Simulated scan of single mutants.
Amino acid sequence: MRRYLREKHFAGDPAMVTPNDDATDWEIDGAYGIGFYYIRCIADRYGHKKMLSFSEALLRDKKPAALAAVDTLGGSWPDISKRCLAYPEGGGRLGARQVDETDPGAVAAGAEAAGSTVAMEQAAVD
């Protein structure tokens, strides 16, 4: 993923991370990694249910990220994206999560995420 960030000059907008049909494996891997990173951030901050609603708005309803963020997450896409760029907060830990505790999926994802932080950070090395 570092190669993708370095060579593609990722400027912080995951909406611009769509590999071309002739993309190399490392470009596809990098785009997937950035997508995963953002979705994981959204799930940790807003809960599993809202993350799924956001994904559905983007992928099925074809809404732009700016509209989907307001409709499903209650915030502006630039602010959410900026927060995700700083993720995980707390010195490499999943510190400031806003988990919807009424959503069992969010609680389970939060518990799982706490154990997988090291693996995520190691995956970002390549």
Rank of each mutant, 00 (worst) to 15 (best):
D22H: 06
M120V: 11
I34P: 00
D61V: 14
I42H: 03
C84K: 02
G91Y: 09
A31K: 14
D61A: 15
A111Q: 13
A65Y: 15
V118Y: 12
K63W: 02
G95N: 07
I28D: 06
E7P: 05
D13E: 13
A31T: 10
L58S: 09
N20A: 15
A65C: 06
V17N: 01
A11D: 12
E101K: 00
T72H: 08
G91V: 03
G91W: 05
R3S: 01
T102W: 07
I42P: 00
I28C: 10
F10E: 09
L5Q: 02
T102C: 06
S55G: 06
E7M: 09
R83V: 03
D71R: 13
D22V: 08
G74C: 12
R40A: 09
A15Y: 01
G91N: 12
L67K: 13
E101I: 12
A69N: 08
I34Q: 03
P104G: 13
E56H: 10
G35S: 11
A23M: 07
A108T: 15
C84F: 03
D22T: 09
R93W: 04
A119Y: 15
E27H: 11
I80F: 11
H9W: 04
E27D: 10
D44S: 10
Y4A: 15
Y46Q: 04
I80Q: 07
L73W: 01
C84W: 00
W26H: 02
S55T: 08
S76N: 04
D29A: 13
P88C: 04
A96Q: 04
S81Y: 13
P14S: 07
R93Q: 07
R97M: 11
E89C: 01
L85D: 06
K49L: 08
D21Y: 04
D103C: 09
L94E: 01
A11N: 14
A57G: 13
D100I: 05
L73K: 00
R60I: 12
R45P: 00
P78Q: 09
R3A: 04
S76P: 00
G105Y: 11
D44F: 00
G35F: 03
L67E: 15
D44P: 03
E89L: 04
G47Y: 12
K49M: 10
G75F: 10
G95I: 03
M16D: 07
G30Q: 12
G92T: 06
A31Q: 01
R60S: 09
V107R: 06
S81C: 14
K62G: 07
F10T: 10
Y4F: 15
F36I: 07
M16T: 08
T117C: 04
T24P: 01
Y32P: 06
S53F: 09
P88G: 09
D103R: 08
I39M: 11
G47T: 05
K62L: 14
D61P: 12
A108Q: 15
E7Q: 11
A43F: 00
V118F: 12
W77E: 13
S53R: 12
V99M: 07
I28N: 12
A109V: 07
V99I: 13
L73A: 01
R97I: 02
A66N: 02
M16S: 10
R6D: 00
R40D: 01
F10N: 04
A23P: 10
Y4N: 12
L58Y: 05
M51C: 05
Q98F: 08
